[in-house]
Amino acid sequence: MQTITLGIKEKVFEGVARVPVELDGVTPDALCGKSADEIKELKVWWGNRQEKLGDLFDVGVEGSAEKPDDVKIVCKGDFASVKRVGEGMKAGEIIVESDVGMHCGAMMSGGRILVKGNAGCWAGREMRGGELIIEGDADDYLGAAYRGEMTGMTGGRIVVKGSAGDYVGYLCSGGEIVIEGAVGILAGLGMKGGRIVIGGDAEAPGGEMTGGTLVVKGKVVDMLPSFRFEGEEEVEGVKLKKYAGDLAMGKKAKGVLYAP
């Protein structure tokens, strides 16, 4: 087991601006077996310049690993303006002890990310596999597609203990998203497959969905006028109404929405 700690340095917070540091490329796959000195030499983007990782983070390494599965990266200090943490990771584990910036776990295909605080927008964007756990709130576009693409998340699992913003699971076609709290507008927008479960309230859930299952256990604001009521069912111990839609999309709409 190799445990790598990245402690963010004060210099990242100097001045009136919070220029984000971007940690794409700093994954268990890339760091596996590397020494602290080697890791410090890795280049990361800070605004329009590349800096040595060691200039922006205190790097500690304990133990060693043969394969990325046995690598754990622990992020210490305020990572709220650090973007792309765990982007594209395939294996191993990343723990962020604070909030985390945008694109955390974007395009990940394996491994596990645990965020102990809140996550910025596009957490789990285009996720293919693995697990992303957010103990705080998630911002907009959780598990969403990139602009213009036909699909977003296709596999893996995202769990949010708090609430989430707008467009949860935009164009989702596989995998599972579970949010214990409330969400913003258009959860499951255009979803084609997979499963999204929302513990709290939702606004206009399931807009333009053509497949998959979307469960809302809390209150629905702006229930869309283009779903067909199909009776009541019990889902995860809660009695809910079952709707088919979104019929705005015409005959191809085969989505299932459960709502109170």
């Binding site: 206009a204 807009g207 869309l224 006028p225 283009s226 779903f227 019929l247 705005a248 999309m249 015409g250």
Partner: peptide
């Protein structure tokens, strides 16, 4: 702030699903 709902209803109607649209949107 209800334009999205109105447009969804119009699409449902145009696409042959007027029956599901509620009495007022």
């Amino acid at each position: 702030n209800k334009d999205y709902l109105v447009l969804a209803a119009l699409r449902a109607i145009v696409n042959g699903f007027a029956d599901v649209v509620p009495e007022s949107v």
